[in-house]
Simulated scan of single mutants.
Amino acid sequence: MNNDTYAVEMFTAASRLVYRNNGGSDTVLQTLSPNTWYTIKLVANPVTDKVDYYVNNELKASGIGFRNADNIEFSGGWGGIGTIYVDQVKLTN
Protein backbone atom coordinates (compact mmCIF):
# COMPACT_ATOMS: atom_id res chain seq x y z
CA MET A 1 0.00 0.00 0.00
CA ASN A 2 1.02 3.62 -0.22
CA ASN A 3 1.48 6.06 2.66
CA ASP A 4 -2.17 7.21 2.74
CA THR A 5 -4.08 6.76 5.98
CA TYR A 6 -7.65 5.55 5.69
CA ALA A 7 -10.33 5.87 8.35
CA VAL A 8 -11.11 2.17 7.91
CA GLU A 9 -8.72 -0.30 6.32
CA MET A 10 -9.44 -3.93 5.44
CA PHE A 11 -7.50 -6.11 3.00
CA THR A 12 -6.49 -9.66 2.14
CA ALA A 13 -3.07 -11.08 2.94
CA ALA A 14 -1.95 -14.71 2.59
CA SER A 15 -5.54 -15.99 2.20
CA ARG A 16 -6.74 -14.06 5.24
CA LEU A 17 -9.13 -11.15 5.61
CA VAL A 18 -7.42 -8.54 7.79
CA TYR A 19 -8.24 -5.14 9.26
CA ARG A 20 -5.78 -2.51 10.41
CA ASN A 21 -6.71 -0.84 13.69
CA ASN A 22 -6.17 2.80 14.67
CA GLY A 23 -2.81 1.89 16.21
CA GLY A 24 -1.61 0.51 12.86
CA SER A 25 -1.67 -3.16 13.94
CA ASP A 26 -3.21 -5.82 11.71
CA THR A 27 -5.80 -8.30 13.01
CA VAL A 28 -7.07 -11.35 11.11
CA LEU A 29 -10.86 -11.46 10.79
CA GLN A 30 -11.08 -14.76 8.94
CA THR A 31 -9.18 -17.24 6.80
CA LEU A 32 -10.38 -17.23 3.18
CA SER A 33 -10.91 -20.18 0.84
CA PRO A 34 -10.23 -19.88 -2.91
CA ASN A 35 -13.23 -19.53 -5.24
CA THR A 36 -15.59 -18.79 -2.34
CA TRP A 37 -17.96 -15.83 -2.26
CA TYR A 38 -17.91 -13.78 0.95
CA THR A 39 -20.35 -11.08 1.98
CA ILE A 40 -18.44 -8.41 3.84
CA LYS A 41 -20.12 -5.54 5.65
CA LEU A 42 -18.56 -2.63 7.47
CA VAL A 43 -20.77 -0.42 9.61
CA ALA A 44 -18.87 2.79 10.26
CA ASN A 45 -20.13 5.49 12.61
CA PRO A 46 -18.51 8.89 11.96
CA VAL A 47 -20.01 10.31 15.17
CA THR A 48 -18.18 7.80 17.39
CA ASP A 49 -15.29 7.17 14.93
CA LYS A 50 -15.82 3.42 15.27
CA VAL A 51 -16.49 0.57 12.84
CA ASP A 52 -17.96 -2.95 13.08
CA TYR A 53 -16.82 -5.71 10.68
CA TYR A 54 -19.10 -8.53 9.49
CA VAL A 55 -18.29 -11.55 7.32
CA ASN A 56 -21.28 -13.50 5.96
CA ASN A 57 -23.52 -11.56 8.39
CA GLU A 58 -21.48 -12.71 11.40
CA LEU A 59 -19.99 -9.96 13.57
CA LYS A 60 -16.21 -10.46 13.57
CA ALA A 61 -15.04 -7.28 15.32
CA SER A 62 -16.88 -4.33 16.85
CA GLY A 63 -16.12 -0.87 18.10
CA ILE A 64 -12.80 -0.61 16.27
CA GLY A 65 -11.52 2.98 16.22
CA PHE A 66 -11.03 4.91 13.00
CA ARG A 67 -7.50 5.57 11.83
CA ASN A 68 -7.55 9.40 11.80
CA ALA A 69 -8.76 10.04 8.26
CA ASP A 70 -11.89 10.65 6.25
CA ASN A 71 -11.11 8.75 3.03
CA ILE A 72 -13.06 5.91 1.44
CA GLU A 73 -11.27 3.72 -1.08
CA PHE A 74 -12.01 0.26 -2.50
CA SER A 75 -8.99 -1.67 -3.69
CA GLY A 76 -8.32 -5.16 -4.93
CA GLY A 77 -4.91 -5.61 -3.36
CA TRP A 78 -1.31 -5.20 -4.34
CA GLY A 79 -0.65 -8.14 -6.66
CA GLY A 80 -2.97 -7.14 -9.48
CA ILE A 81 -4.42 -10.65 -9.62
CA GLY A 82 -8.04 -11.46 -8.89
CA THR A 83 -11.30 -9.60 -8.88
CA ILE A 84 -13.07 -7.47 -6.32
CA TYR A 85 -16.78 -6.70 -6.54
CA VAL A 86 -18.23 -3.76 -4.62
CA ASP A 87 -22.00 -3.66 -4.33
CA GLN A 88 -24.66 -1.93 -2.29
CA VAL A 89 -22.52 0.81 -0.80
CA LYS A 90 -24.63 3.00 1.44
CA LEU A 91 -23.49 6.25 3.01
CA THR A 92 -25.82 8.03 5.40
CA ASN A 93 -25.48 11.11 7.49
Rank of each mutant, 00 (worst) to 15 (best):
W78E: 06
T31I: 01
L42N: 06
G65N: 14
V28N: 11
G65S: 15
G24N: 07
V55M: 05
V55E: 00
Y38F: 05
K90P: 00
I64C: 05
T27W: 07
K50L: 14
S62L: 02
N2V: 08
W37R: 13
V28F: 01
L32M: 10
K60H: 07
A61E: 07
Y54G: 02
S33E: 13
D26K: 06
I81T: 14
Y85T: 13
F66H: 12
L29Q: 03
N57D: 15
L17Y: 13
V47G: 04
F66N: 02
A13S: 15
F11C: 06
N68T: 10
M1H: 10
S15H: 12
T39G: 06
I81N: 13
E58Q: 15
A44G: 09
Q30F: 00
G24E: 05
T27F: 11
N56K: 07
W78R: 12
V47Y: 12
K50R: 15
N21T: 04
T5H: 07
N22K: 10
V51S: 01
I84H: 00
T31V: 04
S15V: 00
E9A: 10
I84W: 04
G77H: 06
S15Y: 11
G65K: 09
V47P: 01
Y6Q: 04
I72F: 14
N68H: 14
M1F: 10
N93S: 12
G24A: 09
E58F: 01
V86P: 02
R67C: 13
L32I: 08
T31G: 11
S75E: 10
V86F: 07
M10Q: 10
N45S: 07
V28C: 00
I64Y: 06
V18L: 03
S62R: 08
L42E: 14
V86I: 15
K41N: 07
T92W: 09
L59H: 04
Y53R: 10
T12G: 07
N2Y: 07
V43R: 11
D49T: 11
D26T: 10
M1W: 00
G65T: 03
E73P: 00
Q88N: 15
M1L: 10
A13K: 15
N21H: 01
I64H: 00
R67V: 01
G63W: 05
K90V: 12
G77S: 08
S33W: 03
L17G: 02
S62W: 01
T36D: 04
D87C: 02
Q30S: 08
E58M: 11
T36E: 05
N2F: 05
D87Q: 09
G79V: 02
N56Q: 12
G24K: 08
A61Q: 09
G77E: 06
N3L: 08
M10H: 05
Y85W: 12
G79A: 09
K90W: 11
N56P: 02
Y54A: 05
G77D: 08
V43D: 14
G65H: 05
I64W: 01
I64K: 13
G24V: 09
